[in-house]
Computed example of a mutant assay.
Amino acid sequence: MKRLLNTLYVTTPDAYLSKDGTNVVISSQQKILFRMPIQNIQSIITFGYQGASPGLMRLCSENGVALSFFTTAGRFVARVQGPQTGNILLRRSQFQNAGDTDYCRRLASSFVLAKIHNARMTLRRFVRDYPSDEGVSAVADAAESLKNMSRLIIRSVSVDEVRGHEGQAASIYFGVMHHLILNKDRCFAFARRVKHPPTDCVNAMLSFGYTLLAHDCGAALEGVGLDPYMGVLHSVRPGRMSLALDLMEEFRSWLVDRFVISLINTRHIRASDFTPAAGDGAVGSVSLTEDGRKKYLTMWQNRKKTEIIHPFLQEKVPIGLLPHIQALLLTRYMRGDMSDYAPFLVK
């Protein structure tokens, strides 16, 4: 089993990454802020504009450490990737299967059914924990509607039909999310999901979490030898990690949405932790401040260390390893070792 190592998040905008022997060194204004042995790091995510030395990039490449660059607002910029060492036979099978429309439909359906199931569990948990809340009736109705959407997806005959039902399910789910937010601070008012760019605090937190999750899923797929860019549910386009986006569908509600709602309801994140994303190419966009990102990432790391019983393997594992486990199960399915893919389904 893969060992859960540290993800190093660099949030200081003017930080520069370099190497000293086998250590990763973080500096700002020619002063060393932090150093850590590369052997203790699984991936590095940096939010800034100073960049990294070629020596550090080579060190990361040689040690299989994913190095990703984001803007200070959390928008993906680039990813450093070393030589591909994946099983060529596995990738050949992956590309061959991508041309099989029925195979793509079945796998896409698995991802979306898991997404809807886990979203229903999020809504049902609210109904259970807050039976007297004024929004409980609407949330319960939405959970039942999602159950009906699952039946439609099972009967779908194409990937396009699956995508259509997935979009409807997402609309139902996000249509009642505001009821789950018990902190009624005006900053956390939520009307609908807005992606590009996020125009309010809740959408900014959701987008930030999805970005982190996509990074983890992409690294997990590469780690087992799959091409994260060849997806089945999300259309394939240059520079888009379509399969990573497919895989993360299972985790969106259970891992990111519940995490964001918890941060808001427990008041760990406040209105002062947000700022207009000036200079990020979008008018009206909102993003976390540097201090806000630090709070978010600290609790995100702690969340990833929490152990659960994996519903399929029935083994205790850290949440941070879930993308790697699902990537392994996906390879077994693609090799023909499993008759069906076993998505992550919350109980």
Rank of each mutant, 00 (worst) to 15 (best):
Y341S: 06
V77C: 01
G279Q: 06
R106H: 11
D340Y: 14
M241Q: 11
S287R: 05
R332C: 09
A244Q: 11
G164V: 05
L206A: 01
R128V: 07
L146C: 05
R3F: 13
H268W: 07
P198A: 07
R75I: 07
V80P: 00
M338P: 00
H165M: 08
S156E: 07
P13F: 02
F95K: 01
Y173S: 01
T22W: 02
V194D: 01
P54Q: 15
K305M: 07
R240N: 15
A214F: 12
L59W: 07
L182T: 13
A66Q: 15
R155K: 14
Q81E: 11
G86P: 10
G225P: 03
L123T: 02
T211G: 11
T275Q: 13
T72C: 15
S137A: 13
G64S: 04
G164F: 06
G225M: 11
R79M: 01
I44P: 12
K195L: 11
V80A: 14
V162Y: 00
N63W: 04
S171M: 01
L213A: 05
F344A: 10
V10Y: 02
S242A: 15
S53R: 08
S156N: 08
S53I: 05
T298Y: 11
K2D: 09
F34E: 10
V232S: 10
A78L: 01
G223A: 14
R335I: 08
G218N: 08
L33Q: 14
H234L: 13
L212S: 02
P13T: 04
R237K: 15
V202Y: 09
V80Y: 13
E290I: 11
S253V: 06
V256M: 01
A142H: 02
K147A: 12
L5Q: 12
K316R: 15
G51Q: 09
I269Q: 03
H117T: 12
H178F: 12
S43H: 02
G223Q: 11
G279P: 02
D246V: 05
D200A: 09
A189L: 14
L113K: 13
P343Q: 14
R193S: 05
V24W: 05
T306C: 05
G135R: 03
L243N: 10
F274V: 13
I261G: 04
D291I: 04
G239N: 14
H324V: 11
L107S: 03
I269L: 13
P13D: 03
S145T: 09
D257H: 07
E290L: 01
I41T: 13
G21M: 09
D185F: 14
S109P: 01
S28N: 06
K316P: 00
T72W: 05
R91E: 07
N40E: 15
C104I: 00
G135C: 04
F111R: 03
R151T: 12
M241H: 08
R92W: 13
E144R: 13
F95E: 03
R270K: 14
M149R: 06
A204F: 03
G21P: 04
E307K: 14
R75E: 10
P13L: 02
R91Q: 15
G223C: 07
V25M: 06
T11R: 00
P198T: 09
R105V: 03
W300Q: 10
H268D: 09
S235C: 10
